[in-house]
Design a protein around this nucleic acid. Structure first.
Length: 937
DNA sequence: GACATCACG
DNA sequence: GACGTACGTGATGTCC
């Protein structure tokens, strides 16, 4: 054993962080033979394997240890009983896995250290100090901000999740101070996750500001009297003891008693027998194989469990072969393609992925297609790869030889992809369906792993392939950046060498198939099969058709408006500069803030986390009553927005081939079930102001046609009336009354015929507030009234409609108990933050109240959209659905068929809840038509 | 790439 | 009683 000294590099892994990440990143997995939960152990082992196996370059370890916490009571609890008191109980499934992670570490022959009564952080601090004093370097493997105080003098951190080293600059970035001041910042700002109190009202930004001015916490507290801001000064004086206590809680103990030395942590090779023995005991087949391969030995055989116990491990993923990019087949001739197609027919399913030259399905060209028949068996069919660079027989840009003839291949593929007996499985199939549609292939039937995940895990995490693969397969796919590069040197996929393309593309199909095999049986267990089959999957062809159809936008109208806006902006800019007495960038909130508040000395000072002045519209509006400049800036901002985001940008989006604008809807983007529109976003075209609304005049039908707009009237309030069971509201909707006026009448005891617009406006704000999970603060801000008044309104509202309060409380209670809420149609919306502590709790609470209402409305319009093609089929190509804007559908229809369309579409929309949900309130649709979108409203 | 701002339902 | 607040999105320009 050699001494630790100069030239040595100690790596300290934060064991708890590894365990928790492994636990939360992987689906519950149990040991097949006895049902012992081992998912976190498996993840932990895989993370260890990857960490020791990675190329650390100049940071390679000579010594390494995994450090664990031991015992729940530490010296910090003696200082402050509430320390970490708000931590949730350890999940039931995780508890038995903790000792196994210790054994795993030992099996890897890595030092595994803990000290009774001390947190891992203190041991890490002590070891880091010792290593530093011995002249060595230290890497702390963790992203925990509590450890950042240790950075410096050869000590750095490494965030294994983001694959990023954290040095002095990284700490500066996080805390705004050098590492030696981190403890002081934390003492002031406190930490809600550890229940460190800190100073109320002071966050990291403020703390950093103060410490950079006063240098040390002690100096700051001693000279607190000097601070200008009243509130801050009083807080620092009043809470001095609490701040000092916080400091002693966050300061790590660098003198933890240790019964081992740095030399004991020397890097050692694992003993294959011990390590593989442990893995076999845990029954990790894939991991055993992988590690055996690295160690150059054979993996031990792990017996399969008896078939009669299969149902007890229902949640365990099907055992799969490891990913092997070298095993993927590149299809170079029609015969081989025929063989793969034959295999897909035999199975009845195939996973498919298309590779193209870009992300825009309307302009991207098909480059190749990958297929996967079963886990590990995938192939890539290159169709249009081109030579890159030079030094080849074939010049840059030439189609490479030895690729299957495109037309012949597509003809073979068409038979498969249109075969009703073969399920085509994809990840985000709308993309592939559109690409294939442009080659004349109408792919069907389909399954979509992205949408399966969305139905099961909405709100829990994203549903992109990378996330799903890492989370559910424990496999990190080849990043697209590695294949096509990034930034300036990025190339299109057709310039990727075919061998590289094969590894990447076939892997995507492989992953998709594995995800499908995992997800398919889970759908019914989470009871979202109907959601998936009626509201997610059928959206794919409907949206694909709408997006490909596009909407005609008149370039001349937009370009004339842009020119007019330019002129107007130039005029306003000159006025603003004159008023300011100097020229500055009106588009820079920073510069504007300095002009308004520093130079002109207006009231309404600082705000915001970055220390910049807030200059949002609400603030400028307040100033505008007294001053010219902010009023002109508001005008300028409005025009600037309209020009840059709409009249300029929309022209860029007109497709040269179709002359129309083609948006793309994300089906699985919004947590509530809403769609989102991108590239361009056609769900936020201006309408609220007269000037903005004119942009809608550029959205026009083809000659002889009209645009028809149908929108649900007050759909969210109707849903609220139903779910909360408010008889008065339900009756008002049945009677077709003005719902806001009726609310006002109930609340303020004003007869309906004496209603003033002002009182109605307030009631309307309250109605919307309720949908958003009302708070006194929010309503006060919206109505610009004192907070106490707003709270009074809310109290009275709840008094008059007690069912609303009950609904809100019940919804939150349900969310807290189940970590999810549901729409009337069974859509699941996870609320992972609902049991969080601190300010996040408020957000989560309001989101949980809103989600079933917004989500039910989203479900209803989805149902209408799915039925719409069938309902308007008799009109043939005379009518087409173009856009969805949450509660509105826009159609383009031949003028003499418009009334027919309105009748059919209205019927579908108003009946969209049937027959699954019988609403106590009618759904009412309002229709309009005209020669442009503005006129159709 | 983060932040502020603002467009929509 | 304090915390920091309306819910859900996407695009743009500034600034680091």
């Amino acid at each position: 054993m050699s001494e630790f000294g100069k030239g040595c590099h100690l790596h300290l892994i934060d064991g708890s962080a590894f365990i928790f990440r492994a636990f939360h990143a992987l689906p519950p997995l149990t040991r097949k033979s006895d049902g012992l939960p081992v998912g976190a152990v498996q993840g932990f082992c895989d993370m260890l394997r990857r960490y020791v196996g990675r190329d650390h370059g100049e940071f390679a370890p000579t010594h390494i240890a995994v450090i664990f916490d031991k015992g729940s009571h530490t010296f910090r609890n003696d200082l402050y009983a509430e320390y970490k008191a708000n931590r949730d109980e350890m999940p039931e499934d995780l508890r038995p896995q903790i000792p196994l992670t210790r054994r795993a570490t030992e099996a890897f022959n890595i030092a595994c250290k803990e000290v009774e009564g001390y947190e891992a952080d203190d041991i890490i601090a002590t070891l880091a100090r010792q290593a530093r004093e011995a002249g060595g370097r230290v890497t702390i493997v963790s992203s925990d901000k509590d450890l950042m105080q240790l950075v410096g003098d050869g000590v750095e951190m490494f965030d294994a999740m983001k694959n990023r080293r954290i040095d002095r600059d990284g700490v500066m970035e996080k805390f705004g101070v050098t590492p030696d001041k981190v403890v002081d910042v934390q003492a002031l700002a406190g930490d809600s996750t550890d229940n460190v109190p800190g100073a109320p009202g002071i966050g990291i930004k403020t703390a950093a500001l103060l410490l950079n001015e006063y240098d040390t916490l002690e100096a700051l507290l001693d000279r607190a009297e000097e601070i200008k801001q009243k509130k801050r000064r009083e807080t620092l004086i009043e809470y001095r003891a609490q701040i000092e206590l916080s400091k002693s809680l966050v300061k790590l103990d660098e003198n933890t008693p240790l019964d081992f030395t740095l030399a004991d942590l020397e890097l050692r090779d694992p003993d294959p027998e011990t390590l593989l023995g442990f893995l076999a005991e845990m029954e990790f087949r894939t991991l055993s194989k992988r590690i055996a391969e690295t160690l150059g030995t054979d993996a031990p055989t792990i017996p399969e469990q008896a078939p009669d116990t299969a149902d007890t491990i229902d949640d365990a993923p099907v055992e799969q072969p490891p990913f092997d990019p070298d095993s993927y087949v590149c299809i170079r001739d029609l015969e081989t393609l025929g063989t793969w197609i034959g295999k897909a027919r035999e199975r009845g399913w195939v996973a498919i992925d298309t590779e193209t030259t870009g992300l825009n399905e309307m302009t991207a060209e098909l480059v190749g297609v990958s297929l996967c028949i079963e886990a590990g068996q995938a192939a890539y069919l290159p169709l249009a790869h081109r030579a890159e660079g030079d030094g080849d027989l074939f010049g840059p840009g030439d189609i490479l030889p030895n690729q299957v003839d495109r037309e012949a291949a597509l003809s073979l593929l068409r038979d498969l992809l249109e075969d009703p007996a073969v399920m085509k499985i994809g990840q985000n199939m709308k993309y592939d369906a559109k690409i294939l549609a442009r080659t004349g292939i109408a792919i069907a039937p389909i399954d979509d792993t992205m949408l399966m995940s969305y139905a099961m895990n909405g709100g829990e995490h994203g549903h992109g392939m990378d996330v799903l693969s890492e989370r559910y397969l424990g496999h990190q796919p080849i990043p697209i950046k590695e294949v096509i590069g990034s930034g300036k040197s990025q190339k299109t996929f057709d310039r990727v060498p075919i061998a590289d393309a094969t590894r990447y593309a076939a892997e995507d199909a492989d992953i998709t198939l594995r995800l499908w095999q995992l997800f398919k049986p889970q759908l019914h267990r989470v009871r979202v099969t109907r959601v998936y089959e009626t509201m997610e999957r059928p959206m794919v062809p409907v949206l694909a058709a709408m997006e490909m159809h596009g909407v005609k936008v008149d370039r001349d109208t937009l370009s004339r408006m842009s020119a007019a806006f330019s002129q107007k902006m130039a005029g306003l800019e000159a006025e603003i500069h004159a008023l300011a007495g100097e020229t500055f960038n009106v588009g820079s909130p920073k510069q504007l803030g300095e002009i308004l508040f520093d130079k002109m000395g207006l009231e309404g000072g600082k705000k915001g986390k970055t220390g910049a002045y807030a200059t949002g519209a609400d603030i400028l509006e307040d100033l505008a009553t007294e001053h010219e400049l902010p009023a002109r800036v508001l005008d300028w901002r409005q025009i600037s927005k309209l020009k840059s985001t709409y009249t300029d940008a929309l022209q860029e989006h007109i497709n040269p081939a179709t002359g129309r604008v083609h948006t793309s809807y994300s089906i699985a983007g919004a947590s509530t079930g809403r769609l989102a529109s991108t590239d361009p976003n056609l769900q936020n075209i201006p309408v609220r102001t007269e000037e903005g609304r004119r942009i809608r005049e550029a959205f026009v039908p083809e000659n002889g046609r009209v645009l028809v707009s149908l929108d649900y009237s007050q759909i969210e309030l109707r849903i609220l009336a139903h779910v909360a069971g408010i008889d008065a509201l339900k009756q008002a909707f049945r009677d077709g009354q003005d719902i806001h006026a009726m609310t006002a009448s109930e609340m303020f005891n004003v007869p309906m015929d004496e209603m003033t617009p002002e009182v109605r406006r307030q009631a309307k704000a309250i109605n919307f507030g309720v949908i958003y999970g009302i708070s006194g603060f929010g309503l006060a801000r919206n109505l610009r009234i004192p907070r106490a008044d707003a709270q009074g309104f809310i109290d009275r509202y709840f008094e008059r409609f007690p069912g609303i309060k009950a609904y809100m409380d019940d919804t939150v209670a349900f969310a807290k108990a189940h970590n999810r809420v549901e729409t009337l149609f069974g859509r699941v919306i996870h609320t992972p933050e609902i049991n969080a502590k601190g300010p996040r709790a408020g957000f989560a609470r309001r989101a949980a109240i809103n989600a079933p209402i917004q989500g039910t409305a989203a479900d209803i319009i989805r149902r209408a959209m799915v039925r719409m093609p069938g309902a308007i089929a008799p009109l043939g190509t005379r009518a087409a659905m173009l856009l969805q804007v949450h509660d509105e559908l826009l159609f383009e229809v031949e003028a003499d068929a418009a009334d027919d369309l309105v009748a059919r579409a209205t019927e579908v929309m108003e009946g969209a809840a049937d027959p699954v949900v019988a609403l106590d309130v009618p759904l009412v649709v309002e229709a309009g038509q005209g020669p442009n979108w503005a006129a159709a409203h």
